[in-house]
Design a protein around this nucleic acid. Sequence first.
DNA 1: ACTTTATATATCGAACTGATAGTATGCATC
DNA 2: GATGCATACTATCAGTTCGATATATAAAGT
Lengths: 191, 191
Amino acid sequence: MGGLGRPDGIAMDVKTVCLGMLTEGEASGYDLKKEFESSFGHCFAAGYGSIYPALAQLAESGAVSCEEIPQEGKPDRKVYRITDTGWEQLLAELDNPSPSHKIRSEFLAQIAFAHLMTPEQIQRVLDSRIEDAEEKLRIIDEFECSCDQEWPVGARFALGFGRTMVAAMKTYVEENRHMFESDEQKKAAAR
Amino acid sequence: MGGLGRPDGIAMDVKTVCLGMLTEGEASGYDLKKEFESSFGHCFAAGYGSIYPALAQLAESGAVSCEEIPQEGKPDRKVYRITDTGWEQLLAELDNPSPSHKIRSEFLAQIAFAHLMTPEQIQRVLDSRIEDAEEKLRIIDEFECSCDQEWPVGARFALGFGRTMVAAMKTYVEENRHMFESDEQKKAAAR
DNA sequence: ACTTTATATATCGAACTGATAGTATGCATC
DNA sequence: GATGCATACTATCAGTTCGATATATAAAGT
């Protein structure tokens, strides 16, 4: 499942997402990082450690061009633009009919061993997950308001998807945390 | 957020999950892989490329012991058991109050650029996502029925969490795929 | 005067992914 | 009876990514 038999180097990785972002105009690595945090933060994270090597590889393969703008005292600002080769490559990469959707949850992995934790530890973990969900909802809502209509459909779909998932997560945790209540706590709550 | 300031080597990584699995009894790398596929498949994937090095490191640090059972013609079967040191380490690692929950979705990253795809490409991607969700629901339900009550709370919570998320994903895609319909398709649907 | 935030680059080790490789047994299909 | 496929079991390796860290300046807040 998820792209079996796809030819070499064709995948929706950091390189491809950078390429896609560059279709909306030139940008520096720093600019792209900001976009990874805002519009893609909820579904596809990337740090400088991935972005800079990705841009270097794209430049080497000719998918992007790079203009170095010298600045006094600071390191040069490098501005990247997508090339015709880059467009071709991007469209080929967008042809994947079954892109993956993966979850890596230290949260769930830890809570699966809740029977080895104290009730206090469990409650703290659940509280922090709810807080995290609320913060993500705030970020998404803020972002959604600030742009709204003029966005491409796909971006709106993706953001709505993220919102729905985070909201479902929060609800699940709130409605099922009682599972971890010990008998004493249940008695206390009943009183 | 997400474990800031946690001391070195303390994290809910593949090593720790292996250690946790070994609290339920001795196992080989192969056994652990199967458990990663069944009970943890929906939230924390790991392949042999992570598991074998993890076990080797755990053995080297003394967190697990390893018994090599010679077999004719085949490579030795290596059975691992958690040690007292391993228990200590595991309990320390389970003390993390804010474990992460990360999503890496090639699906959403790709769909964010739907305006560069053909309607057929988009529909195929959405169909395959729904199929994937249905398959995961089938796997979870099957697994849930086969065990049910005798499971530790945490495992039941985690499995229910996974189920809820996958169901929410399926519903969202089904209820919002109309966003990608072109004007012509909408007219055709109205007739 | 001091600290934080923003702009901007980049690297490095550790961890993880996905593919591949090897070897044997058994079971079904042609 | 041969061929192929699934299961059992090990393991490695190149490429990617993660998270932290380093460096340097300017603006803006306290």
